[in-house]
Write a protein that binds this DNA or RNA. Structure first.
Lengths: 219, 219
DNA sequence: ATAAAATTTTAGGCAAATCTAAAAATCAAA
DNA sequence: TTTGATTTTTAGATTTGCCTAAAATTTTAT
């Protein structure tokens, strides 16, 4: 029931990679964890023996139900701390991720549940990512990727799925945050970039790479 | 400047033991850290090489200025988190110590300074222990040990220097907390226990062992 | 279909922090 | 002041998580 910091990091990263692409490879995990493939092979062996992941040699990994539950617990802690850091300690959204990476490993059920209550049971973290509840339930919203939004349709930015400091800083400089109105004016075929209107005023251009990280709800 | 969790624990414990008895022995450190003397010898060797402690083989340890500064930083984090846990998350004073033991090792200067500001720059933690400020300064109050308080002199409980769960729970059950009025009615020569009046009403008996852990300010 | 390229695993090591058992140094008491 | 008890240190292992280099396997491209 209690896992080491290292094991927790593996579980969390596998959970995130899994979201995007069913099976997770040794190399992608190594890259995400900034470690070497050989180390991944060892640790995943251990996690398999603890029944936290399904693992076929030379094929890939997938979390078991048990592993999924553990990962959601870690993500709950991470996102609650992010919310605390942003709302109470006034950190910017590009700063909170790194700090929460450490706080998330303090794992006392009661502490986290009290923190949750203190914060008023928030459902979304500062990046718009859903916070699992006590029982690991995720609130799912009907968001679509900005790249899927039809032209001339009003929407609100609701989630940014990449925690990179430089992306978040860039968005903040452009006044784009969770809840900001956004609308696509034109799709540029050449580089697949988008001309968008922000806050019903400024019109700017977003590269495909950035647009892929932004999720919106149609209003 | 950045120390491992283990090194930090050594520094913190040495700081506390030093307070009571100038030089710290290998055995006492081992006991306090729940480890073996052999392990202490190794780690203290390392801390000495980092110039964090003065250390004479077979004699004992004492923190250097550098080591003292590091210890105060750790204690600052610990006590600020304790204050947070008690004031904001409503944990009882016997619960906060253990939780803060983990939170204290998240060491980002900015995080701690923001937390300090969020809490309103508290000067005392829930046990009445002073919280070092940004620069490691400790507010010193003119407290005396309850055992030194003259008879029939009004005082306020201002500090409890032992974090043991059972002591704190015991005090809470007797309605003794920081700020509670207290007065010695009688010293019992036989077992050195004290008859004291709490809150200007209830009169109870305190063993010498307990009285030694309680500090008061005369009013 | 097979050779080259890429991925994954194994083998053997390393560093940190711990342990036990035994040796060395110090202290204490007759 | 010498001997026995206590404390401290050394020596050698263990565990965790990582590493590099080399071997095994799978994939890809001709």
């Amino acid at each position: 029931m209690k896992y080491s910091v290292s094991e927790e990091n593996y579980l969390k990263v596998i959970y995130h990679l899994q979201d995007q692409s069913g099976l997770v490879s040794t190399t992608s995990l190594a890259k995400a964890l900034k470690t070497k493939p050989a180390s991944v092979t060892e640790m995943t062996k251990k996690l398999k023996s603890k029944k936290l992941l399904h693992y076929q040699p030379y094929r890939g990994f997938r979390l078991t139900q048990e592993g999924n539950k553990a990962a959601l617990g870690i993500i709950r802690r991470h996102r609650l701390w992010e919310y605390f850091l942003a709302e109470k300690l006034r950190f910017s959204w590009e700063e909170v991720h790194e700090l929460a990476e450490e706080l998330e490993h303090v794992r006392h059920k009661k502490l986290i549940d009290r923190l949750d209550a203190f914060l008023g049971f928030p459902r979304l973290d500062p990046h718009g990512d859903p916070i699992p509840d006590k029982d690991g339930q995720l609130a799912t919203a009907d968001v679509i990727c900005l790249t899927e939004l039809p032209e001339n349709t009003s929407a609100l930015i609701s989630r940014v799925t990449n925690q990179s400091f430089s992306l978040l800083e860039m968005l903040r400089q452009r006044n784009m945050k969770i809840g900001t109105p956004i609308e696509i004016l034109k799709r540029n075929a050449f580089d697949e970039s988008l001309d968008v209107r922000i806050n019903r005023q400024r019109s700017i251009n977003l590269s495909k790479t950035i647009a892929e990280q932004i999720f919106v709800v149609v209003t």
